[in-house]
Amino acid sequence: MVISTPHPYTQNPFGTTISADDICNTLSFFDSWEDRYQYIIDLGKELPPIDDSYKDEEHIVRGCQSQVWIDSVYSEGTLWFQADSDAFIVKGLLGVVLAAYNGKAPGDILSFDIEEYFNNLGLMGHLSQTRGNGLRAMVKKIISVAQLTD
């Protein structure tokens, strides 16, 4: 969908007021897993919920442990994603992903190294296939959307 007026998705704090660098900086301050995961859970609370009408077959990314829904819009050369999950930590991790991708040109999305990003955050385990939390599948979906619009 191509739009010309500001869309609510472009108001997502992730990718606007919360950047990937912000998340990297904040996480690097924490020593304990308790602080790190409290922060991720808190990030999830900032994630705007996806409209219930998008919680359908077309927008679902299935994991065997939790589910993720994702929708996207293309606006003035940039892509914006709205994502949601039924699990708190996964929601926070979606925020971490969207902070890196939201408001970026498709080409920038394709050249971004998500593995390195998660590695630097010490969250690589969550991107692994074994977690089955839908996060990896969601990243794949974002990349395929970027490929289609690039």
Partner: peptide, 13 residues
Amino acid sequence: GAHPADLGTLLDQ
């Protein structure tokens, strides 16, 4: 009130 996947992550930690 909690999702099992979140429990799994926090127990793993």
